[in-house]
Amino acid sequence: MRSAGKPRYASVMTDPADFSQSPPQEAAPLDEFSLIRRYFHHRQGDTVVLGPGDDGALLVPPAGQQLVMTQDTSLVDRHFPADMAPADVGYRCLAVNLSDLAAMGANPLWFLLSLTLPEVDEDWLAEFSRGMFELADQAGISLVGGDITRGPLAVSIQATGSVPPGLALRRDGARVGDQICLGGVTGAGLLGLEQWQAGQRHGPAIGHFRRPRPQWELGMALRGQASACIDISDGVLADLSHILQASGGLGACLDEAALPEDPPVLAGCSADKQRALQLQGGDDYLLLFTLPAAQPVPRGCYCLGQVDAQPGIRLRQRNGAVGALTVAGWQHF
Score class of each variant (00 low, 15 high):
M69N: 12
D239C: 04
L98M: 09
H42C: 13
G140M: 12
A321V: 07
Q195A: 00
L169D: 01
D55A: 11
G235E: 01
P7E: 12
P311L: 07
G282D: 07
T14W: 11
P292F: 03
S99D: 03
R223Y: 02
D121K: 03
G248D: 05
S11C: 11
S20F: 11
R213H: 10
F333Y: 09
I206E: 08
V265D: 05
Q215R: 11
S241Y: 05
E134Y: 06
G56A: 13
V96N: 11
V322P: 12
A221C: 06
G189P: 08
G312M: 07
L101P: 08
L98N: 06
A188V: 10
G282H: 07
S34V: 12
Q306Y: 00
D284S: 00
V297L: 13
A228I: 02
V68W: 01
E127A: 14
L279I: 10
H41V: 15
M13A: 13
P212R: 00
Q138F: 05
D231Y: 05
Q71V: 09
Q245A: 14
L288F: 01
R171Q: 10
E127S: 09
G329T: 03
S241I: 01
V89T: 14
S22P: 02
N97L: 01
L315V: 09
M104L: 00
S247R: 05
L222F: 03
V120Y: 13
M132T: 06
G5A: 11
L67P: 01
G189S: 07
